Simulated scan of single mutants.
Amino acid sequence: MPQLASYKCHRVARCKSPHTIAKELILPSAIDIVSTMIDDATASKLKAIPLSNNIARRIYDMSKDMEVQLNDKIRDNHFALQMDEATDNNKHCLLITYVRSLMPMI
């Protein structure tokens, strides 16, 4: 549960602010508010929220989750796959992939 709360702190990233703002300002403020409004025991649970600058781990976790969701949706369904590769003037390789599902992917 604390790790899920850590992922919910995406507002800091959207503001293009350093992660230290959440660690040094937002979390201590939230702890003060909760201890004042509710109690210290509940406020101490907020201290378990990990706020680190490990963006690569979060991106990896989110990409794995998207991969699992996609696999679940296309498993046992018919779909078409089209791939195209090209290089640009700087000899960068480009790969474009289109997946067309014959079943609505809601």
Rank of each mutant, 00 (worst) to 15 (best):
A43W: 05
K16T: 03
P50I: 00
L27D: 03
I96C: 12
L25A: 05
D32V: 09
D61A: 04
D65Y: 06
V68F: 07
I59N: 01
D61P: 00
Y98R: 13
R57M: 14
L27C: 04
K91R: 10
A30F: 02
P104Y: 07
P28Y: 03
A22K: 07
K45T: 03
R100E: 11
E24H: 09
I21G: 00
Y60Q: 07
S17K: 11
L81A: 04
M105Q: 14
A48S: 13
T20L: 05
S63P: 00
A22D: 11
S44W: 01
D40C: 03
L51G: 07
A5R: 04
A22G: 15
N90K: 08
L95I: 13
C93F: 12
V99H: 06
I38K: 09
I21L: 12
I59F: 06
H78N: 13
I74L: 15
S44F: 02
N77Q: 15
V99K: 11
L46K: 08
L81K: 05
M37I: 07
I59G: 00
L94C: 09
L25R: 07
R58L: 05
A48K: 13
I49K: 06
S101G: 07
S63G: 00
P2L: 01
M103A: 14
D61Q: 05
P18G: 14
I38A: 05
P104H: 09
I38R: 03
L25T: 06
V99R: 10
P50Y: 01
D88N: 13
L94E: 09
V34T: 04
K45I: 02
I106N: 15
D61Y: 00
K73Y: 10
S17E: 15
S101Q: 05
V68M: 12
M105I: 15
L27E: 02
L51P: 09
H78I: 11
S44I: 02
I49R: 05
M62P: 00
Q69E: 09
T20W: 09
S52L: 07
